[in-house]
Design a protein around this nucleic acid. Structure first.
Lengths: 161, 161
DNA sequence: CCGGTATCGTTGCAATTGCAACGACATAGC
DNA sequence: GCTATGTCGTTGCAATTGCAACGATACCGG
């Protein structure tokens, strides 16, 4: 993932580590959820985002942003959750184009059922290897690149501003 | 992604940050590759892994492990790269069940063509927000959980050993 | 040498994803 | 009020993924 001597190599390694860690770890965690007969990870994300939103509801496009999912994919993800009765589509009074996704009681129930397993999986596969301080550092560093949609031209020496 | 007061919350936030960062950033980077008319990110991974392997070749199952891809998906990914002439399947003398994936000249050429764009995307979307020291820290922390396939039962307080 | 079992890569099938096009409605300018 | 343009969510279609089953060896015990 990197070439002879490039001042960016350290960063490239971090990038590779990020891709790999996410891929391997989510796979391990997903496998546990599946083994427990629970739905995929992203279902939990949706339920959780709705749960913590005011009124337990969110406009589609907002939900899409929060879980970083394209509109079209969100439509279908919501289809699935709705079919299971975990959330409902509800018209939006102010804007007749829009819809709310609303968490149902069953949805909240499902969320509570999933969390213990999910939490345990995170603990085992991820948290067990990090101290709380390290976890905080990690979270901070990972959040950094997300803020700046796109930095200026970063060129070879990677620290802009 | 976390519940009232749980000693694991810091870790859970780091976990959430990991998922989100990977999702958002790869999307941004992928978009750049696509805009430049280049193939998806994983193609580069495959080419790179072959390139750095002895003899520019790797057994299928090994390649699968290195890029963290299931066997069946690898078969098809290789199909695609092979169809483009970027690599070739080659019989394995020692084990007649097995195959080698071998990097072709065209494959190496493609790799070199992709890298500058990929590198620049990493620099802009990821590296620009981190100092080299931070990148190194990040890489170290991310690699940690990968080592231990699965720690023991990590329970509520997440710092085993 | 022979069956029993595990490994390697492939394949069928169903589910998910990404992308572009679409209909419904909102908003701005005339 | 009316057209031009943008936003919201949906849909069709092709590509990718995940999972389980399969044929072809390898390897182990007798």
């Amino acid at each position: 993932m990197n070439i002879p001597d490039d001042p960016l190599n350290t960063h490239v390694e971090a990038w590779a580590a990020l891709l790999r860690a996410q891929k391997v770890l989510t796979e391990r965690v997903q496998r546990e959820l599946a083994a427990a007969g629970l739905p995929p990870l992203e279902w939990y994300d949706v339920l959780y985002e709705l749960w913590r939103a005011p009124e337990r509801r969110l406009r589609f496009y907002e939900l899409g942003e929060r879980i970083a999912l394209s509109r079209s994919n969100l439509t279908r993800l919501v289809d699935r959750l709705e079919k299971e009765g975990l959330l409902a589509r509800e018209a939006c009074t102010g804007d007749r184009r829009g819809l709310y996704a609303v968490l149902t009681a069953a949805g909240e129930e499902a969320m509570r059922r999933i969390w213990p397993v999910y939490r345990e999986a995170i603990a085992r596969h991820f948290a067990a290897q990090l101290t709380p301080a390290e976890a905080a550092t990690l979270a901070g560093l990972l959040a950094r690149p997300l803020g700046a949609g796109t930095a200026g031209t970063a060129d070879t020496d990677a620290d802009a501003d």
